[in-house]
């Protein structure tokens, strides 16, 4: 499709640094002729991490596919805020079917394109953590094991934010949601529950699994490009803080994502064919407390008194990630 010139305020904070680089090394977002796949005027909350991630993911995928991309979207915030009839923010072919079937719908699109010899067109599925790790998980696993030629991107804001901040299988321990209230002797979400969708994706031995956050957007673009260079079922899991659900200010969305990686609570890594191939080392290691303190969903860990016992358990989980994914070894 025809590229549009992008308004300056949309080009992103690191566009300026890109001026020093040769054109072919610059970020997708620094390119004024990029697709602008998720265009301005949509109805996401101020400071929405998902909207930011989706724009970067789609534009990078559009560049990697030379504009030959079709997207399938699960029900969720992204779908609701981008397509209130008769408006749409999408400048790419976009299909929304249901909450729990986006991976299967994407598989269907891929099968149709193959049958029609339109294999120049690539397929990208996307959904939130509820649509991906909970209600759509069977479909996701089916797509993985069949090796369907789809890149599936999960924007993980760790809960059902669109329906009013309920717990999902990606909600972290101790976090307050509207169905894991901060009451009782063990306030917030229970320890020992939840799942790691990226690790389960790796167990399918698919060509590519990666995690990313909106704190390192160049890394996010790189991972989309890497995923698009491969074929078969690929999975990208992006941490996207949610000011509404996490109880943070809109201006801190990116900072919180950065603290998630710097504390080790959200490991950033890549895996190919089920084997870990790279992890992003922590440059400035911080205790998880710095990450937790900025979010009202963890306020009960600090007020009325500091719950050192609970914070220690979360710190232990972060330390375990650091060891498991070699986040402080410098060998990433």
């Amino acid at each position: 499709m025809t590229p549009t010139r992008v308004k300056f305020y949309q080009t992103g904070s690191f566009a300026v640094g890109n001026r020093l680089l040769p054109a072919d090394l610059r970020a997708v977002q620094s390119d004024p002729t990029r697709t602008n796949s998720l265009t301005s005027g949509h109805r996401a909350c101020q400071g929405c991490g998902e909207a930011l991630a989706a724009r970067y993911v789609l534009d990078a995928a559009m560049r990697a596919s030379k504009g030959r991309l079709v997207t399938v979207n699960a029900t969720g915030c992204l779908e609701v805020f981008s397509t209130p009839y008769p408006e749409t923010s999408w400048r790419v072919p976009w299909l929304h079917s249901l909450f729990g079937n986006a991976p299967a719908v994407a598989s269907g699109v891929a099968a149709a394109l193959k049958a029609q010899s339109r294999t120049d067109i690539r397929v990208l599925g996307q959904g939130g953590d509820g649509g991906t790790v909970d209600i759509g998980f069977g479909a996701l696993s089916g797509m993985f094991e069949r090796g369907d030629d789809v890149l599936y991107v999960c924007y993980d804001n760790q809960g059902y934010m669109n329906t009013g901040v309920q717990r999902s299988g990606a909600t972290p321990p101790a976090a307050r949601t509207s169905t894991t209230q901060a009451v009782g002797p063990e306030p917030g979400n229970v320890f020992g529950q939840g799942k790691s969708a990226p690790l389960i994706a790796m167990a399918h031995e698919i060509p590519y699994v990666a995690t990313a956050t909106i704190a390192d957007l160049r890394d996010l673009e790189y991972k989309v490009e890497r995923a698009m260079a491969l074929h078969g079922a690929r999975y990208l899991h992006v941490l996207v803080p949610c000011p509404l659900g996490w109880g943070s200010t809109a201006g801190q969305t990116v900072a919180i994502a950065r603290l998630a990686t710097q504390s080790g609570i959200f490991p950033v890594f890549e895996a190919e064919d089920g084997v870990l191939t790279a992890s992003t080392p922590i440059r400035r290691h911080v205790p998880v407390e710095e990450y937790l303190r900025l979010q009202a969903r963890f306020r009960h860990l600090f007020e009325p008194e500091r719950r050192a016992d609970v914070i220690d358990r979360i710190q232990a989980a972060a330390d375990h990630n650091i060891e498991r994914f070699h986040l402080l070894s410098g060998e990433g």
Partner: peptide
């Protein structure tokens, strides 16, 4: 040219058909 997709449930069967039909 025809693709046969062995899916993991009937919900997925109809969903694959939805995606395929929307893709022409």
């Amino acid at each position: 040219p025809c693709e046969f997709v062995n899916v993991e449930s009937e919900f997925a069967a109809m969903s694959v058909a939805i995606g395929a039909s929307a893709a022409g």
